[in-house]
Design a protein around this nucleic acid. Structure first.
Lengths: 149, 149
DNA sequence: CAGTTTTAAGACTCTTTTGTCTTAAATTAG
DNA sequence: CTAATTTAAGACAAAAGAGTCTTAAAACTG
C-alpha cells in the first residue's frame, strides 16, 4: 500500500548508505545482503536512483554506490518521486480522474488533509535525520537479521 | 495506492446506493452501468460485501442489491476492512515485519501519526454523510458520465 | 594485455491484481 | 410449469508488479 515494494527497497538502501561513512562507494551486493533484498532486483532499483542523480555509482573494484548529495539534502520525498512518481500526491482516495477544486470527488476534502500531511512528512524528513535515529537507537532496516551498524 | 481498485469500486457502489431510496433493491447491472464499472467484476466485489453483511442481495426480477444496515451506521472503514482487510492499519510505511513499539522501524512514529488520522477519517465518515454531500453538491462518482442523481 | 570486480541493460519468469466469461441457482411472472 | 430476470460461484485471461538471470561495459590489478 501507498509505496511500492520497489520504492520501499529504494528508501531502505538509501537509509542504509546514510548510516555509513560519507562518499564511500558500497557494493550493491553488500547492501543487498545486509538488507536481505535480491541483488539483481536492488541493482535495478538503484540504477533508477542513479539516473535521477540521487545516488552515484562507480564500476570496478572498490566501486559501488554512494549518495550523490549530502544526506541532509536528500528528503524521503525525493526517493518516492524518483521511483513511484508524483501521481500519489495528485490523486484522491477514490482516484476519480481530474479530481480537484473544480470537479471534486466526494472525499476530496477529507483526503486532501491527509495527503498534505503525508507530503509534508516526506518533504521534511531528510535521510540524514532518519539515519541518525537509526544509529542512535540501533533500529533495524531488515527483518530479523541485525545489521552491523 | 492505499486502497485497491476493488475496494474503491466497493466504496463507489456503496455511496451510489446510499444516494438512492432506502431499502430498495437496485440491480448490479444498473449500478455497474452508472458507475462505468464492469458488471461481472462489480458482482464479485458486491458478493464480498454481501457476505460481510454490509449489503443484502435478492435474486430474480426486481431483485438486486441494497444496503444491509442504515447508511448512518455504515462507515467507510467497514468497507475498507471488508475488502482490503486491516493490514494497512497494522503496517508501517516500510512494511518491516513486526514493527511496533518493541521493534519500531525508523519511520514508526512519523507514519503512526498519519496512519491514525487515516483510521479516524475512515471510522468517522459514514456512508450517509458522504451521500448527503454528493446529493447536495451534485458530485460525481464516475469519470465524465454525469450521474442522474 | 588478461583477468577480476563491479554496475548497466534488458530479456525473461513468477505472482498478484484486475477483469471477463460461463454456468448454476434463486425468484418472479404468466 | 416455463420463461425471464437476477445474483452466486468459479474458471479463465490480461495486465501490472516483483523478482531472476544473462550478457555487456567499465574500471581496476597485476
Amino acid at each position: 500500500m501507498i509505496l511500492s515494494k520497489t520504492c520501499i527497497y529504494g528508501i531502505l538502501a538509501t537509509l542504509h548508505l546514510a548510516t555509513k561513512k560519507d562518499k564511500e562507494y558500497l557494493p550493491i551486493s553488500q547492501i543487498a545482503k545486509e538488507l536481505d533484498i535480491s541483488f539483481h532486483f536492488l541493482t535495478k532499483i538503484l540504477q533508477k536512483l542513479t539516473q535521477q542523480e540521487i545516488m552515484s555509482s562507480y564500476r570496478g573494484p572498490n566501486g559501488g554506490i554512494a549518495l550523490a548529495r549530502p544526506k541532509e539534502e536528500i528528503k524521503l520525498m525525493d526517493i518516492v518521486v524518483a521511483i513511484d512518481g508524483s501521481e500519489i500526491f495528485e490523486q484522491c482516495l477514490l482516484k476519480l480522474p481530474g479530481c480537484g477544486k473544480l470537479k471534486p470527488c466526494p472525499l476530496h476534502d477529507e483526503w486532501g488533509l491527509i495527503r498534505k500531511q503525508i507530503q509534508e512528512m516526506l518533504n521534511q524528513t531528510s535521510v540524514a535525520s532518519v539515519a541518525e535515529k537509526i544509529v542512535k537507537n540501533s533500529l533495524r532496516l531488515a527483518d530479523v537479521n541485525p545489521l552491523e551498524l
